[in-house]
């Protein structure tokens, strides 16, 4: 126990430092280079007006969103994997992300003129519509996978099918857009932190923080569920109720992530797997580690994506997919 505890603490501290390190690099890089010294100066209030503008109004909101979306997605994936007892579950693969994406695109093009002109209450209704879409998608997937209970394998296959269905719905809708909006929607749907400003942070991040805290608080319930339904019921756990609560948390986290950063796939799959590998399967230690790991991966991917082919940007979701699919395929080959 002592050693496990030590490992956990070591990983948490290491990851925390890693995130701070990437954060500092990310602050320095971009079309306007600002040296670490100047970043520090600006943070203690001694920077030039221009540096303040770039750091506080352009870079920091995006970084904050990347960190919290990374946390939310990896936590959502970890919970889905725990609840469905299937190591290959992920909000992207299951179709929850594309459901949320469909409703968001519908909302923007029905009630707002375009993606860049969101203002006032529009910003706060966006996460609501993403959540709505995520829950509708989850309900559809669950209902279609239900056949005297929900088998993990059937759930995944149904998820893939529903995902394709939402994709077709999106294509139908995208035809009505002008070419520029079409491309923007395409990019956003594959994962992009597209509206990095403080209004947006205030619309999405508080909800994510609340759900993360609640999820971490629930991690012991996930352990009991993993023992199998019979044993869990024997231990006196209200299995169906706990499962439902956990699912709601996972879907909520995925929905809010989509509102902020589009449909990033595979992150919710890869981060929990790495976490399980380094600190073991116990959810009390695995969930916090995978949360920080998700934040670190997404922040790194965002930094790479926005600088590697500058001045053009690669959307963060694309970087995540390219980097994590080989690992996913490896997992696929390994699990029986």
């Amino acid at each position: 126990m002592g050693q496990a505890r030590y490992r956990f603490t070591a990983w948490m501290t290491g990851l925390l430092f890693l995130i701070i390190g990437i954060l500092l690099i990310s602050l320095n890089m971009g079309p306007v280079q600002i040296s670490p010294g100047d970043v520090f100066q600006t943070f203690i209030g001694e920077g030039s007006a221009r540096e303040e503008l770039v750091l506080f109004n352009f870079r920091l909101p995006g970084i904050v969103i990347a960190i919290f979306v990374g946390m939310a997605l990896s936590l959502s994936g970890a919970i889905l994997q725990g609840v469905t007892k299937n190591g290959l579950a992920d909000p992207g693969i299951l179709g929850i992300n594309s459901g949320a994406g469909l409703v968001v695109v519908l909302y923007i093009f029905l009630f707002q003129s375009s993606m860049s002109s969101l203002s006032g209450w529009g910003i706060y209704l966006l996460p609501v519509s993403a959540l709505l879409g995520a829950f509708i998608a989850a309900a559809i997937i669950y209902a279609l996978a239900w056949k005297k209970g929900v088998e993990p394998i059937r759930l995944i296959l149904v998820g893939i099918g529903v995902n394709a269905g939402f994709g077709a719905g999106l294509i139908l809708f995208q035809v009505q857009m002008n070419p520029q909006d079409f491309m923007q929607a395409m990019v956003w749907l594959s994962g992009d932190i597209w509206s990095a400003n403080w209004h947006f942070v205030s619309a999405v991040v508080p909800g994510i923080i609340l759900l993360i805290i609640y999820a971490l608080f629930k991690s012991s319930a996930l352990n009991v569920l993993n023992l199998g339904d019979d044993l869990a019921m024997g231990l006196g756990a209200p299995v169906e109720k706990e499962r439902l609560i956990l699912l709601v948390i996972a879907v909520g986290l995925a929905g809010l992530s989509v509102a902020a950063a589009g449909g990033i796939a595979f992150l919710g799959l890869v981060a929990p797997h790495i976490a399980r590998r380094v600190v073991g399967p116990k959810h009390q230690v695995m969930l916090p580690v995978s949360t920080l790991l998700g934040a670190a991966i997404l922040l790194a991917a965002d930094t790479i994506g926005s600088n590697i082919i500058a001045p053009a940007e690669i959307p963060v979701g694309i970087v995540v997919t390219i980097v994590s699919t080989p690992y996913f395929v490896y997992l696929l080959m390994k699990t029986a």
């Binding site: 995944i156 893939i160 690669i314 694309i318 997919t321 699919t325 696929l332 080959m333 699990t335």
Partner: peptide, 27 residues
């Protein structure tokens, strides 16, 4: 893969490889 190419694995491998290739195309 251990256990051969079951339908689930095949579909997931297709999703992963398709996703990877279309991401590369987008980039």
């Amino acid at each position: 893969s251990s256990g051969g190419l079951t339908p689930v694995k095949l579909a997931l491998a297709g999703v992963a490889i398709g996703g990877m290739l279309s991401s590369l195309s987008t980039a």
